[in-house]
Simulated scan of single mutants.
Amino acid sequence: MPTYIALLRAVNVGGTGKLPMADLRAMCEALGFTSVRTYIASGNVVFQSRLAAASVKKQLERSLEDYAGKPVGVLLRTAAEMAAVLAANPFASEPPERTLAIFLDTAPSADALEKASGQGTELIALGTREIYVYYQDGIARSKLKIPAAKNGTARNMNTVATLAQWAAER
């Protein structure tokens, strides 16, 4: 049975989109997902489902919208895809807490980096359906704006590594 990782956008960040992880687990279980496990309070959930990825995403987004009263974006990866994101990190030698993968539904456009603004000491690279960013001076000081990341959601490489490990254990 396929293992999926769902990454929710704008959940429990800055006081918006409050969603207790116990509620997220219960929601996933009510959808028939199995071996459901959440990681930290920012909307990360690993589970198994016999459904195809498109169906999983659609059902989870519908349930989240019913819960929240507004759309909640879901970025979905399989266990193999999450492992590939970790392995493809071009900044693997940098501190993982300062290196992010911004997850997207589709491949970033070839000119995504050219359209970025406010770049200082950050390093940016394109992935398959991700944009990698290393924030040398920390994300709080950054003025970097990446229009291609508007509908994505970011996770630091510590989180990516944990989610990849959990998914591999299923």
Rank of each mutant, 00 (worst) to 15 (best):
P2Y: 08
Y4T: 07
I5R: 13
L7H: 07
L7K: 09
L8H: 02
L8P: 12
R9A: 10
A10V: 10
V11E: 02
N12R: 05
G14A: 12
G15V: 03
T16H: 14
T16A: 06
K18Q: 02
L19N: 01
P20N: 01
A22L: 01
L24G: 00
R25W: 00
R25D: 00
M27Q: 02
E29M: 04
A30I: 04
A30L: 04
L31I: 05
L31G: 04
G32C: 05
T34Q: 10
V36T: 07
R37K: 11
T38W: 00
A41N: 10
A41Y: 04
A41P: 00
N44T: 01
V45H: 00
R50I: 07
A52P: 04
A53E: 07
A53D: 04
A53V: 05
V56G: 03
V56R: 05
K57G: 03
K57W: 05
K58H: 10
S63P: 05
L64R: 09
Y67N: 08
Y67H: 15
A68P: 12
A68V: 08
G69K: 08
P71M: 10
V72F: 08
V72H: 09
V72P: 11
V72K: 11
G73Y: 04
V74R: 06
L75H: 10
T78N: 11
T78W: 12
T78G: 12
T78Q: 14
M82I: 14
M82K: 13
M82N: 14
A83W: 12
A84H: 12
A84I: 14
L86Y: 12
L86V: 15
A87D: 12
P90E: 04
E94S: 09
E94N: 07
E97R: 08
R98A: 08
R98P: 08
F103W: 10
L104N: 13
L104E: 09
D105R: 15
D105K: 15
D105E: 15
T106S: 14
T106I: 14
A107G: 15
P108S: 11
S109F: 13
A110Q: 15
D111K: 15
D111N: 15
D111H: 14
D111Y: 13
A112G: 09
G120Q: 14
G120F: 09
T121F: 04
T121I: 04
E122M: 07
L123E: 14
L123H: 06
A125K: 02
T128P: 02
T128A: 11
T128Y: 01
R129M: 03
I131T: 05
Y132I: 06
Y132V: 05
Q136M: 05
D137W: 06
R141F: 06
K143E: 13
K143V: 10
L144S: 05
L144Q: 06
L144K: 06
A148P: 04
A148T: 06
A149Y: 02
A149I: 12
K150L: 11
N151I: 05
N151H: 13
G152A: 03
G152Y: 03
T153Q: 02
R155D: 02
M157W: 00
V160L: 04
A161E: 11
A161R: 06
T162N: 11
T162P: 03
A164D: 08
Q165C: 02
R170L: 08
